[in-house]
Write a protein that binds this DNA or RNA. Structure first.
Lengths: 163, 163
DNA sequence: CTCGGTGCAAAGCTTTTGCATCCGC
DNA sequence: GCGGATGCAAAAGCTTTGCACCGAG
């Protein structure tokens, strides 16, 4: 049962993006749609540079400026989500047709896992009510040590003083 | 009943920092303690530049390099917490003797509010158990529109198409 | 044809690094 | 006095901006 395949999500996303561009009276340039396609082909939490590189490596002629500009548009129409996972560089992921989720990041190998918990929505509602905020979105990230063998710091570094 | 005043928190923090420096065999330089004091005097969620500027304006001779270096040490011994609230620049706040809390940020005026909810701890525990992670800390930030009069975008811009 | 969008490179900002000097231990 | 820590400035890394050209409407 794949009622919504990766491909159909891309098609839906294109329609949404088109409608958004029309509503804002922005131009439907090939670069904008190429970037949207590249993003929906990806599965990871990517940064701007890696998206730029992967388009360049396919001989697509784009500039970083356009990638940044288009990402802003895609974030604004909710087709892409932007994250600040702690480094100095933003990370992005496609978000149309994917369940709302939060993230878990390994402090050692930096892998990113996803999880869902309905309580976050309740907290969001409750706090918004309590503090009189009209909450639009949230960011929850848990940081810890994973237990994979590939992970560089698998064994907890046991508090060594000077021996 | 102010069993722990702001002043006594600073004193406690100094002891913890001293112990930490000794344990790590690092030097107890005046700059390090001056930075700790300045941080514990502050009440806001500050960035490096504003901490640096406020020390400079008091004619204290410090460099950004030392501020960055010391902040790393303070974060490592849990006297200061580092946040990435979405911009490209990190924000910090003192954390010794203050209750664990999360943040709510106005998308318009960027004010930062704090709130507590015990359910976050449960989520953290549950997810760590489920995904086999040894979770060390988390970051939950809610973004929304506040309802203060001072706020620049007080009135919600009602989806205007073209007229 | 218009003027918004693009590519490229330069500039901007935050953070890190190199090196001579300084001072805690 | 030794070697870690500091101050300063230069460099690095991510993002934004300026400008001439291009192409969507």
């Amino acid at each position: 049962m794949q009622s919504t395949t990766s491909q159909s999500k891309l098609e839906e996303a294109k329609k949404i993006f088109t409608a958004y561009l029309e509503r804002k009276e922005l131009r439907k340039t090939p670069e904008r749609f190429a970037i949207l396609e590249e993003i929906y082909r990806r599965q990871d939490h990517f940064d701007v540079e890696s998206l730029y590189i992967s388009m360049k490596s396919k001989n697509y002629r784009v500039s970083r400026a356009t990638v940044y500009n288009t990402l802003d548009l895609l974030v604004e129409c909710d087709l892409v989500t932007k994250h600040q996972f702690g480094g100095n560089m933003a990370r992005y992921e496609k978000s149309y047709g994917y369940r709302q989720h939060d993230h878990l990041i390994c402090l050692d190998c930096h892998q990113v896992l996803e999880f869902c918990d309905p309580r976050i929505q309740s907290i969001q509602n409750m706090v918004g009510e309590l503090l009189q905020f009209n909450i639009k979105h949230h960011s929850l990230v848990l940081y810890g040590h994973c237990q994979k063998n590939e992970c560089p710091n698998k064994k907890q570094p046991a508090e060594k003083k000077n021996g």
